[in-house]
Structure formats: C-alpha cells, structure tokens
Design a protein around this nucleic acid. Structure first.
Length: 298
DNA sequence: CTTTTCTCCTGTATGC
DNA sequence: TGCATACAGGAGAAAA
C-alpha cells in the first residue's frame, strides 16, 4: 500500500524518466480514473496534450507533475499547472515500451512526442487511485507551489516546511486517538496504516491513547519515530507485500523485512519477545506489542 | 466546527 | 469442488 516512502520512490523514478518530456497523447480507460477531475476524462486528456513536464513533486502520498502548456500563438505563455496523481492502494506508474501488453488493470497511458519508444502507464487494480488537473498556488518550501485542491494537506516529514512542534501543538488539542491523528493527512501527510503502526511500536505508545492525554515529549517521540521509519523505508525502496506496490520499473521494495509490528501478529516483539497482537481498528487492523504498548483504560 | 462511520473497488485467502 | 465471507485500505462524503 503506497505511503510516503513508496510514493517518493515512484516520484524519483518518474523524475529520471519523464522530466522534460512533451505529452503527445493521453488515453484514459474507464471513467473512474478521472472521477476527481470535475470536467471529466476528455477534458483531462485534452488539457495535457502538448504540455511539457517541468517537475515531479510530492506532498504526502500525492504526486503531481508540473505541466507547462505550449506557447500560445503570438508568443504568450500560459501558467504551469499540476497533473495530480494519487496511487490509492494499488496504483502503479510504469515506464514501459508501447509494445508491452496492456494488462487488465491499465487505466491511463501518456505518450510522448519527444521519446516514442517509451510511455507512462497508470495501472490500478482496486481503482482507488486517480488523476486530476489543478492550478498551482504558492506554498512555503514548495518551489512550484501546491495544487489548490491539495492545500488541506499538512506538510510531510520530508519537507522543509514540516514542523514537529506545530504538529505536536495541533495534536495536543485533539480529542481523538493518536493513531487517528497520525492517519489524518491534514495534520501530517504521508502516514498510512503501516507506518502509523511502526511509529507507535517504536515510540512504545498504544494507538488508542488519546492525543490530549499524551505529553508533548511523547507526541514528539511518536512523530520522530514516524519520520525515522519512513526514512529507513525509503532507503530500502519502500514496503512491498505482493506485486501491488512496485517502482516505475516494476521492482518491489524490501522494507517488509524490517517491519516490527505491522502484519506481525503472533510473532515475537523484537524488543521483549511478547507475541505481537492484532486488534480491529476503524474496520481495519492495528498491530502492536501488548507489553511495550499497553492499551489505555477506558 | 469536530469526530466518527460509511463507501468506493477487486483479487486473494479462508471457512463451511 | 463450489459458494460465501473476510480482508486489504486512502480519502472524501455523509452522518452523528
């Protein structure tokens, strides 16, 4: 499931393959891939044709390509805008030969006019991912700004604009469980179920502890752990459990071997040997150590 | 406004 | 073997 380290791995791969390319044609398969683009699939494809990819940016789990429109007749230049891409839980961006067989889950293809032996494909089995176009608005630490439809996202821990102190302050005034807060992309973006559980394990905090009941230093430790575990995951090329998360070349990451809590039910805690437990949480699962992360009363 | 629950999807694994 | 059910889960809408 692509969270920040996986999306950053994809971003780097994209930057090395599509930066500077000019879009010749965009083909969208099915309506769901453009469902967050109010003007519809045809408008999405049309608006990209002829544009040059000036940058590949990311905040949290969202990617966007900075698109520079072709010069208008008369030499006037239109403003760059963003092609937002979200991988959802099974989205893949693959750089392939146009001759490669399409496969059943192909949702979009972007062809280039200045490199015809390669194309960019968006493949998404569970269709939670999608694409949309948006204007860019200025944002601190983001050289091209951020898409205006994403201004609600908090900075992620890899951004210069990220402030642990600011997030701790926001969390302290929250009346919800710490794990919910970690997953709330408005506070900190980029954290999903895997890295939330890993951060809580590392900080020895149960996810159902209330934010407002945790001290500032404890909240700081959880956030520091989240940043650290995601940094190490990025070094390993991300976490892959199956073929659903891959980089732009179709390769898996290796961080699943380093997980201490997520998916480890019944296996001994790396610190104390107690079997890791699995508990229902928000119609999903949470994994934690019963001894290192005691459940709060209530 | 804040917080929680529901819904969107499909392939794989498990149970009877 | 065959069918039903659970599970994976990001994010935004809807409900509380």
């Amino acid at each position: 499931m692509p969270e920040l380290p996986e999306v950053e791995t994809v971003r780097r791969g994209l930057a090395s393959h599509v930066l500077g390319r000019t879009v010749a044609r965009v083909t969208l398969l099915g309506h769901r891939v453009a469902r967050r683009h109010p003007a519809g699939p045809a408008d999405l494809a049309d608006s990209l044709t002829g544009c040059r990819i000036d940058a590949v940016r990311r905040r949290g789990k969202y990617l966007w390509l900075v698109m520079r429109p072709p010069e208008l007749p008369g030499g006037a230049s239109a403003c760059p805008f963003a092609l937002i891409i979200h991988l959802g839980m099974s989205g893949q961006l693959l750089v392939t030969s146009p001759a490669a067989p399409p496969g059943p889950h192909l949702r979009a293809t972007i062809e280039f006019s200045d490199k015809t032996d390669t194309e960019l494909r968006f493949v998404d089995q569970r269709t939670f991912g999608g694409m949309a176009v948006a204007e860019l608005v200025p944002a601190p630490g983001q050289p091209d700004g951020v898409p205006e439809t994403l201004v609600h996202l908090g900075a992620d821990p890899f951004e210069p604009a990220y402030s642990v102190a600011a997030v701790v302050e926001a969390m302290r005034h929250r009346d919800s469980a710490i794990k919910r807060a970690l997953l709330d992309q408005r506070l900190v973006s980029g954290i999903g179920n895997i890295y939330a559980d890993e951060a809580l394990w590392a900080a020895k905090v149960h996810g159902q502890r209330s934010c407002s009941a945790l001290t500032r230093p404890a909240l700081g430790r959880v956030l520091a752990a989240a940043a650290q575990v995601m940094e190490r995951a990025l070094e390993a090329g991300g976490t892959s459990f199956d073929a659903l998360y891959v980089n732009v070349n179709g390769a898996s990451g290796y961080f699943d071997r380093s997980l201490n809590a997520y998916g480890q039910a019944g296996r001994p805690c790396a610190r104390c040997g107690t079997p890791i437990r699995r508990e229902p949480f928000m119609n999903r699962s949470s994994y934690s150590c019963p001894r290192c992360q005691p459940r709060p009363r209530r």
